[in-house]
Amino acid sequence: MILYDFDLERPNTLEEASALLRDKGADARVLAGGTDLLPNMRVEVVRPATVVSLGAITPRDPVRETDGTVRIDALTRLATLEGSDLIRAACPMLAEAAHRVAGNQIRQMGTLGGNLCQETRCLYYNQKHDYQFKAPCYKRGGEVCYPYPNNDRDTCWSVYMSDTAPALIALGAEVEIVGPGGTRRQPVEQLFTGSGLTPHALGAGEILSAVLVPPAEPRFGWGYHKSSRRGGLEFGMAVMAVGLTLDGDGATCRGARMVIGAVREKPIRLTATEQAMTGAKLDEAKIAELAAAAAKEINPLPHHGFTKSYIRDNIKIHMRRVLSEATARARGTGTAENGGHHD
């Protein structure tokens, strides 16, 4: 139940929605699946005066363009992605990541664009501030940080929890953004500021319109793992996504993208470990060494009851498995090549 009245607009195109957002200014929010915005409005993390619903706009089906790029409408439901033959064949890591989000109902409602544009989370920030936590925190425009009382005013260590963003970054995907100045394209990585206060680099009136996944190179392999307490219907403790390509010998790494999500204010690319990996022969010992290096390179925020060292240890173990899977898939010996979900 949302306890205050707001206005609702239901435009028929993204361009109209963008114009409405610009007209209403900072008091307007865009609503797609609603699974992030509406609970946040309920606990009054955000209190938009106007909600611009995209519910009247029907997403187009994902398509493969002539150059092999897969174009996915930002309003595509996560459930559509996990069930799409095209996505499972062309970018199975994205199908797997979508499959890992929350529970079935939320995947039936939530959209890919909304998953990327979700707010950062913090145990304190995401509670209704009418009982234990009366004074608003920095992120709510107040003067206090409950989990980190010594934090500076401009520092908020809330965590960005998207399960699909690390996969898209590891795939080298881009987003298309509709705004007052027309349409622009940029890598998914550049969508994030790294600030917990304002996690997204979107201007006034800008809305994600599509996600573009480039075609996989020859001998490409991927690995993905979402660590969490229960394994379903929850946010991640750490999300690991790796995309790598091998040389013709089937052992030497030609290049890699290694991304960890749900541990910082944005998904983090492990550039040092990526560099150490490039040119290395990926045997069992090397993979274990790289996984340890990854756990060392990442500096996770303790969040939702997980300590920094626990998250690091978890990453060290699961990153080894993720790297082994990616290498096996790149060699063509993977077991779940067709986006097969291992539950």
């Binding site: 609503l31 699974t35 509406l38 079935n104 109902q105 039936q108 409602m109």
Partner: peptide, 12 residues
């Protein structure tokens, strides 16, 4: 489609 009616605006 199974959806959560507590997070769906009736007006939508």
């Amino acid at each position: 489609r199974p959806v959560l009616s507590c997070m769906t605006l009736a007006a939508d």
